[in-house]
Amino acid sequence: MAVIYLASLLAGLGCMVLLDHRFRLVLWRAPRVGAATLGIGLATFLAWDLAAIAARHYGAGQSAAMTGIMLAPELPLEEILFITFLCYLALVLRGLLELVLGGHAGRRGVGQVSERPEGTGRPRQAAGGRP
């Protein structure tokens, strides 16, 4: 019971890592920039959390689904993973939407266009070139 929330977060993160790896969205697209971006996001939301906890806006609950490991007063271990999850989700989701909404990779696509199996350019040209 005590690991349900932690396991859910890790499972969600794991799925996003798989998507990232498969479609080269964030860390598999630009590892350094991706890691630095996540680091800045993590620091920002941790600051928000600490400020909110200091101002007594909210605190940890008594859920049996949490490990009970606290990193600071009212700051459970799971919260760090949740912040990481939220930041990574924003980037992964944006990358997926970029693919779905038919975007070309743009100026930052690290080899993304050429490596995409469903590259839009070639089939159209091939079809047009048929006698």
């Binding site: 630095a36 971006t37 920002t44 944006r94």
Partner: peptide, 24 residues
């Protein structure tokens, strides 16, 4: 939270990318 994350993360991602030089 989601609005801030949705604005901040992609913006930082863009800002941290080096601007492509004229030869790229």
């Amino acid at each position: 939270w989601p609005v801030a994350a949705g604005l901040l993360l992609p913006s930082v991602w863009e800002l941290l990318h080096p601007v492509p030089g004229p030869r790229e």
